[in-house]
Structures are given as structure tokens and as C-alpha cells.
């Protein structure tokens, strides 16, 4: 199954490569000195079902994006001792020049020392399986904790970790060349999550856009950075029941501090902004 899929991908690659090359040259010749910001990533045969391109300035599309506000239901920094207060103010979340900006600021607000934003598609967009990807330029600095991730859509009835969590990208601002892709479920959550680190060679995540994606199907989640598949997690890898066979929703946020990253220090520069060029979701016509 695995081998077959890979074969298929590589055949597609070859046929696409020539077009890509021509497209690239074309772009190069047309735009001369501008950098080429088109990136294409390997994918299985799918339909594009969600394309949030952030082309309209202002508030993100309200039909897709809702917000978590505050410091979490128990006021404990969303269970992680995070230091920010999430708002939906344009100071913290807005669309400008074709990108969604999530900005963590250092400011006293409702008893917190930082503000930021967390967007989620709960009850607005939920899907089982497919390709989920976002093109993002990450912020940097000690204590900055951005993430592009998913939670099981039944979380209200089936509390975490039983609902399941897929972290497509998690990043520590103090480790600007590394991201983590993980799954959490019953018996393998928080520190015991099934996780793998990806280290970008000779580059870093806060200086340019990169695509963070998963390809998710029955009994597998494949983790990508740009066109690099760096991990596959299957039921054999998890130390508990496999809970990734139901709809999930998407979250994007920038946390400040918390157990995963530690607090910011005097060298951390604020504000810090995560730039999201797009969020796209494909469904796999063969598996959905």
C-alpha cells in the first residue's frame, strides 16, 4: 500500500516536473528579480474543498474562522500555563496584503502580560481525512509558540485527549530551524505524544514561507514540510487507541510562554507575527 502510493507519486512527479520547470523559467523571465514564491507540494489525487487564501483585507472569513478568547476555560493558560490572553482584536488578528497576520504583543490585558490570537474552524469546517496544509512564515524568539493543528470535532462530548489531536506544525521560537509534528490520543497525550522533529538544513522557519501539511487517510497520517515527507504515523506507532477516523477541525495560534517553550526572556522581541499565506484542505476522493 505504502510502496504503491509512493510509486504513483514519483510518476506524477516526473510528468509534472517539465511543466514545473517551464513554469519556473516563465516566472523567472517575467518577474526578473522578484523571488519565486510559488511552491508546489506532492499530494495524492484530491479535490480542493477549502481554500482560505486571505486575499481580502480585514477580518478573516467569518464563515470559516472562529476564535478562542481569554486564557482558557479554567483560566490556566489553556492547560499549558500559557501567558497570553487571546483576543479577536485586529491588533492580534487581521488580514493584510494577502496574508493572515497573528500577532503576539507584550501588553497588559485583562490580567495577562501578553495578547495574541487563536483561530479555529470548530463547527464551521470539520473534515475526516484529506490533505491539510498551510503556507506560513513563523515568528521567532524565546517563549514564542505558534502552532497549526487539529482537534477531534467531538471534543465537547469526548474530552481531550480522547477526542484526538493532530499537530501539523508546532514550533519553539528559540529553535528557529525545527518544527514538530505529533498526534495525541488516549494514552499518548502531552509529553507522551507520538511526535517527530523536523530540522530544516541551512535555513530557518522565520525567514521565509514554508508549507506545513499532513496527508491523512485511514490508519495513517503523513507529515510534510514543503515537499519533504518526514514522518508517517500509523496505528502501530501509537500507544493507545487510534482515534483519527472521524472529523477534525483546524486551529492556528501563536501562544506566548507555557510548558512547551518556557517564558519569553529579555531578548525576546515583541511584537511577533505569524504570517499565513493560505490554508488549504483537500479531500481524497478515494477514502472520504
Amino acid at each position: 500500500m505504502k510502496t504503491k502510493k509512493k510509486m504513483k507519486n514519483s510518476i506524477r512527479h516526473i510528468s509534472e516536473r517539465r511543466i514545473l520547470f517551464l513554469t519556473f523559467l516563465l516566472l523567472l523571465s517575467c518577474y526578473g528579480c522578484e523571488t519565486d514564491d510559488e511552491q508546489t507540494v506532492a499530494m495524492f489525487t484530491t479535490n480542493l474543498v477549502l481554500a482560505e487564501e486571505f486575499d481580502t483585507d480585514g477580518i478573516p472569513n467569518a464563515e470559516v474562522w472562529g476564535y478562542d478568547i481569554g486564557t482558557g476555560p479554567n483560566g490556566d493558560g489553556w492547560g499549558n500555563q500559557e501567558l497570553q490572553y487571546y483576543t479577536d482584536r485586529t491588533d492580534n488578528v487581521t488580514v493584510q496584503n494577502g496574508v493572515l497576520l497573528i500577532t503576539a504583543k507584550e501588553e497588559p490585558f485583562e490580567g495577562a502580560s501578553y495578547t495574541s490570537a487563536r483561530l479555529l474552524t470548530k463547527d464551521l469546517f470539520e473534515q475526516r481525512y484529506g490533505r491539510f496544509e498551510a503556507r506560513i512564515r513563523l515568528p521567532f524568539g524565546q517563549g514564542i509558540w505558534p502552532a497549526f493543528w487539529m482537534l477531534g470535532a467531538d471534543i465537547d462530548e469526548n474530552p481531550w485527549p480522547a477526542a484526538g489531536e493532530i499537530d501539523i506544525m508546532e514550533y519553539r521560537g528559540q529553535e528557529p530551524t525545527k518544527i514538530l509534528g505529533s498526534v495525541h490520543g488516549p494514552g499518548y497525550s502531552a509529553g507522551a505524544a507520538i511526535s517527530k522533529e523536523f530540522n530544516l538544513e541551512n535555513d530557518r522557519f522565520d525567514t521565509g514561507f514554508h508549507i506545513f501539511g499532513i496527508e491523512w487517510g485511514p490508519e495513517f497520517v503523513n507529515f510534510y514540510v514543503d515537499d519533504m515527507l518526514y514522518n508517517q504515523i500509523t496505528p502501530e506507532d501509537v500507544t493507545g487507541p487510534w482515534v483519527f477516523d472521524k472529523p477534525f477541525f483546524i486551529l492556528i495560534n501563536v501562544a506566548v510562554g507555557g510548558t512547551f517553550v518556557g517564558a519569553p526572556n529579555e531578548e525576546t522581541v515583541f511584537p511577533q507575527t505569524m504570517l499565513i499565506d493560505y490554508v488549504r484542505v483537500y479531500e481524497n476522493t478515494n477514502t472520504n
Binding site: L25, S29, C33
Partner: peptide
């Protein structure tokens, strides 16, 4: 595509940035 490509290359060469 190739035609456009060569045209564009020509333009690039002569009218570079």
C-alpha cells in the same frame, strides 16, 4: 509555452531589472 518562454528570456536579457 516554450515560445513564450523564449520571448520572455529575450525580454529578461535586454530589459533586466
Amino acid at each position: 509555452l516554450q515560445f513564450i518562454l523564449f520571448m520572455s528570456l529575450g525580454i529578461t536579457v535586454f530589459y533586466s531589472c
